[in-house]
Amino acid sequence: MAAVTLKSIIDEFHLEEITNFGNTEDILITVADVTRPGLQLAGYYEHFGPDRIQLLGNMEMAFLKHLTSEERFHTLETIFSKGIPCMILSRHHEIFPEMLETSKRYSVPLLRTDETTSTIMSSLIKHLNVELAPQTTLHGVLVEIYGEGILILGESGVGKSETAMEIVKRGHRLIADDLVEVRRVSDSTLLGQAPEIIRHLIEIRGLGIMDVKELYGVSSVKMQENINFVINLEIWDERKVYERLGINQETTEILGIKVPSTTIPVRPGRNLAIIAEVAAINFRQKQMGYNAAKALTDRLFGPRKNTESSGT
């Protein structure tokens, strides 16, 4: 199961460590949820998720302030004893002495931020959603053409890298060559990027490894991009029937999400970069509500219907 260490969260959000028991590397966060434990402080623990980050804001702190020292200790001891990964205080709230004590007793780190509760909550959830997202690695090339993230898949030696090189030369951007790390960051979004070691490198057979960023500058590369469209390259098969009209939208499933795709047969002399470019533009046009194949159907069959109906 995907997990992030508490240490990485502390570093990412510059959280102040009020108590540190040297265990932040070992504490793992596995759910992308953050709880404001208002009801729990009031004593209600049904459906409580102890594996979530707990966040105290204005309301929770005001509630705790109203309690007597004894009640406060008891309330805090109950929540700290549930095995929560950490307790975060927003808005740089003052710490109650009972909080320090219970944090120490159960070795649960007490953290603090200057940010407001809803800001830190939404950034934490967003960060966790990306980090904990289901992921896979695909053998392919990810480029950005006219703002669309296009993933090119195909067997070794079919010409993916060469196509990527020409796409970059035509003014678009490279995200990853050879190996694409894909994360499912939401139920409809796939995010792709390159493993850090080989980021922005391309291998062209006969030339070797090339650094696209060094060769063509920062405007030719991008760190990450959503995958909007998939192009499957395959060696031209005489017996196979390829799409001629573009009426049916083929899809390719990645991590359970169906991405619109197309299969393009490769044959010497076919300029794949231009085909990829056109596929991207065509995809954008379809997104904006125009489908050339449908328009042609209307032109062919629409008027006839009209004359028939006008004749009656």
Partner: peptide
């Protein structure tokens, strides 16, 4: 098709950059 796996990373054994990224 040949694949190499190290830990949770997997790469096509025919892809130079892919195999290198496995470290």
């Amino acid at each position: 098709s040949i694949w190499l796996t190290r830990g949770d990373r997997r790469a096509n054994a025919k892809s130079l950059l892919g195999v290198m990224s496995l470290g």
